[in-house]
Design a protein around this nucleic acid. Structure first.
Lengths: 420, 420
DNA sequence: CCCAGAGAGTTCGGTGATTGAACTGTCGGC
DNA sequence: GCCGACAGTTCAATCACCGAACTCTCTGGG
């Protein structure tokens, strides 16, 4: 903003309010209202947010000038009265770039202001063996290609968000066991690689790069693009090699003091259980992770080759067919999941729990086992299988899209900061 | 406010910003700044929050008029320049009334705008046998007495907050096992009882009554009055008959979808453990609750009589003296606590964990056991005993004071709503 | 003893975002 | 063809904060 006055005091000072912040707030409010509605008119925005039509007109005018909103024809409602002018979030201009780096692929996408997934490239890559710098450089290469396609559609990302399967804090991956990373400065490395490949538009500042945990942005994708409806607080689990987790409270990610919140995969399910690669014993991951599941079902995790997806599919088929060993494996995993989740639910009291990754495919057998354990252990007594509080993740809500959408949310939150 | 325009849409509409909200925000900001500083001047408030001295003067004037701030003399700093006028939060006028109803006592207190505990009455009462209506009526009687003393000091509570040991949601106690309550409309019953005993000031609306979980307000008391310093995110456990818990994130209570968040006492520590009265098996409470501890140490919980406090004191003495069985009991409880806490810490990534109730007295033996388990199981690797992230609760931060302070926070958040 | 300098607080005109009412367009229906 | 309904614009009024000038009070130096 301007010279930050030395705060001197204890807590960080909460910002004052003035004309400028009023304008910023209301610009954001109007923009987000249009964004959520998809299509509206000035008058209905005014009615919804409580501003006068005059004020909304002024705000909309500014957003049109900046290219954040566009007008498109008139409403023909069949009702009496002058038709309104249709407003939409712009499908050109500011956008978000999301880059998901996972164990065996990189997925990059560009989301526009309306939230639509406009450009998408997914490349299978074995990221376990290549080393962090190499992997990030490859990802940057894919991102540069995507930026090219986006530019051809007049989409210009305001920032990049990396989604990484590990503990991420302030741009650094502290550990990512599945990638074999340790203390990798992902932001810096990616930005450097991308800088060499994508010059950016002249006169535009360099693309800001930030990182986030993959489970976190997947949860946000579920919130924004999944089928959660009114739900604004939930727990999101992703079953993969490991078990990732994220917590959303009132539509906001709970990040924790260091950004490490959500690690449900290492919740102890049996204090004396088998040693986990995290150093602890009896972690949930040892019972409900992909390898554990396949092993228990007698479908040995094909060492080396990435038989994960096919292995899970095979397991699901057998469980659906009622094969005893597969059913037992899935149900046992469900009970362990339920045990861990009951702790989390007692602690956090979320509205619903969403299971993603490999779990949705296994839900017919998995769901009841999880639900039973939860019904038994959640102390409020408000968990019943019938309540439908256990859900499968939506397929269209992936981490890359969530990451890109995080950038979009930042633009929506402060439209003037991204002048376009 | 005014006629709420039918929202019609999906999410609840976020409020617009206008002149009035700017003023409200800044009034609150100035008031809270003075509240936190204890004593300041207009100029230093201005420097701290970033408003001009002129603006702060205007805001302070209004707060003085309303009786929320008072001037008291000048600063004599020894520095050159005109001395400032000392500003303080008023120690008369708006206040908060907190009523803690626990198993064997009722504690009522009045906190003034500055946060000071001004009137306090604690009465031992056996609330287990009396029945909810009777207990609330007794509590109201104590509250009425306290209101009398407060009025004599020109303190006039803006609201009442009940602190109750159970699951509280929207003014109703869903269950409070230690009181034997079930579906008790505490707010309504208490308000009715108090209404008959305390007429209120003429022209003043009736005292609004609200309820909260005792562990929640105890955590807030720790935040506001304890020795946590800069810490704004923590987990708070209270060891009593049961084990209560509360989660504070960025200075805000995490309440959950139904207000039931924080129930760590029923986190499963051993899926096949002993049956808990909550219906589940192997709950933390069965290992680290007061009864379990005393039983394990061979100090049978004197059935009937409230030997709790003395029993714990005896246990602590024996543990301090190194008596094997006492030490073993405390250390075993510590390990179980640590196991449960490791799950919570992995999930929430708090800055610190605070142990209250019976635990502080047992810390010499308990602390290391808890710390060890945490160090072993927290995946970020950031939990080391040396980091001092495990703390004892402060003695001066009790639930009644926290409850009263919650009311004060509401006044601070919207000073004009409580015109005094 | 007097005066410059520093810092606290006030005064006052300026700015600008929202309000509210009046006004202009556009459409459906009688 | 006129009326009523609704969308959007115009314009004066309001009022919270800003900025600069001003007053007040204290310290310290000559």
């Amino acid at each position: 903003m301007k010279k930050t006055p030395r705060t001197g005091g204890a807590h960080p000072v909460e910002p004052k309010a003035d004309k400028a912040s009023v304008r910023q707030h209301n610009l954001s409010l109007v923009l987000r209202t249009v964004h959520e509605a998809g299509e509206t008119t000035r008058a209905s925005v005014a009615a919804r947010v409580g501003l006068t039509r005059a004020a909304v007109s002024s705000l909309v005018e500014q957003l049109l000038e900046r290219g954040l909103l566009v007008e498109s024809g008139k409403t023909f409602s069949g009702q009496a009265g002058r038709p309104g002018t249709v407003l939409k979030a712009a499908d050109t201009g500011p956008a978000g770039l999301g880059v998901e780096i996972n164990v065996d692929y990189v997925s990059v996408c560009v989301v526009d202001l309306a939230g639509a997934d406009r450009v998408r490239v997914t490349e299978p890559l074995d990221n376990r063996t290549a080393g962090a710098a190499k992997v990030l450089e490859r990802a940057a290469r894919v991102a540069a290609r995507v930026l090219g396609s986006a530019a051809a559609r007049d989409l210009h990302p305001a920032g990049v968000r990396l989604a990484l399967p590990g503990l991420v804090s302030a741009g650094t991956v502290h550990q990512a066991p599945n990638l074999g990373w340790n203390r990798v400065e992902a932001d810096r490395l990616f930005a450097a690689a991308l800088g060499g490949l994508w010059p950016g538009r002249p006169g535009t500042p360099e693309l800001p790069v930030a990182s986030d945990n993959e489970a976190n942005v997947a949860a946000l994708a579920e919130l924004w693009f999944g089928g959660l409806g009114e739900v604004r607080s939930f727990l999101h689990l992703t079953g993969e090699i490991g078990v990732g987790g994220a917590i959303v409270v009132n539509g906001q990610l709970l990040r924790g003091a260091h950004g490490f919140a959500g690690e449900i995969g290492h919740l102890a399910v049996d204090g004396n259980g088998p040693l986990c690669r995290c150093g602890s014993h009896g972690c949930l991951e040892q019972y409900a992770g992909q390898s554990a599941l396949l092993r228990a079902a007698g479908l040995e995790d094909g060492a080396g080759a990435t038989t994960g997806a096919s292995g899970v599919e095979e397991l699901a088929r057998r469980a659906d067919a009622g094969e005893a060993r597969a059913v037992a494996a899935v149900e046992e995993a469900g009970r362990r999941l339920g045990l861990a989740l009951s702790g989390a639910v007692n602690l956090l009291d979320p509205e619903v729990v969403v299971l993603g990754g490999i779990y949705p495919r296994l839900m017919p057998r998995l769901g009841p086992a999880v639900d039973m354990e939860l019904a038994r252990r959640v102390v409020s007594g408000l968990w019943t299988p019938a309540a439908g509080r256990l859900r499968s993740a939506s397929a269209s809500a992936d981490a890359a899209r969530g990451a890109a959408a995080v950038v979009i949310r930042e633009v929506l939150a402060d439209p003037l900061a991204y002048t376009g």
